[in-house]
Simulated scan of single mutants.
Amino acid sequence: MKYFLPAPWLSLALWALWLMLNLSVSPGTVLLGALFGFLAPLLMAPLRPMPVRIRKPGTILRYVLLVGRDTLVSNLQVFWSIWNLKRRPPRSAFVKVPLDLRDPNGLAALAIVTTVVPGTVWSELALDRSLLLMHVFDLEDEAQFIEHFKTTYERPLMEIFQ
């Protein structure tokens, strides 16, 4: 069954999304949506990463709350930096962060978090996954930023995925 339907929940979600986007439940739309929901995961199955093995699920809730708090705080900091642009321009910089995290799912989560938190952008990942190049909107101290990034974002993901 997994061979023909590798992700049944994804198939169901794609089918429902198809129906909502078309605003119709005509037989043709329902059939085409079901075909799309069946074929898309089947054709994309080779692109999916390895199955996720979560080591410490309790860490996930703390991590989500931490990222939520940091997103709020960072939004306010970016707002304040832009508001005071004439008084003190931001010190934008590219930062090379050495990574210990190697799990593809953990790196994907780290990329999402880095993009969600305002003021930081994931720019490039080294081929051997040992170095991350990030753009930081307003950087005061590079060493302090790297330590904060590794402690706050990378280490919990290592606990969860590795």
Rank of each mutant, 00 (worst) to 15 (best):
M1I: 06
K2H: 14
K2G: 13
A7E: 08
W9L: 14
L10A: 10
L10H: 08
S11L: 11
A13W: 03
A13E: 06
A13T: 05
L14W: 12
L14Q: 04
W15C: 06
A16S: 14
W18Y: 11
L21M: 09
L21H: 07
V25D: 09
S26F: 09
G28W: 14
V30W: 08
L32E: 12
A34E: 11
A34C: 14
F36V: 00
F36T: 07
A40E: 06
A40M: 15
P41G: 14
P41N: 06
L47E: 06
R48N: 11
P49V: 15
M50C: 02
M50Y: 04
M50S: 10
P51L: 06
V52R: 10
R53P: 01
I54N: 09
I60F: 04
I60G: 01
I60T: 07
V64F: 12
L65S: 03
V67R: 00
V67A: 03
R69A: 07
R69E: 01
D70L: 05
S74N: 03
N75Y: 02
N75T: 01
N75E: 11
Q77F: 04
N84D: 09
P90Q: 01
P90I: 07
S92R: 00
A93M: 07
F94I: 14
F94K: 10
V97H: 04
V97W: 02
D100N: 13
D100V: 04
L101C: 02
D103P: 04
A108P: 09
L110F: 07
T115S: 15
P118D: 14
W122Q: 02
A126E: 08
R129N: 14
L133W: 11
H135M: 05
F137N: 01
D141Q: 12
E142H: 02
E142V: 11
E142D: 03
E147D: 11
H148S: 14
T152V: 08
Y153F: 15
E154Q: 10
P156H: 09
E159T: 10
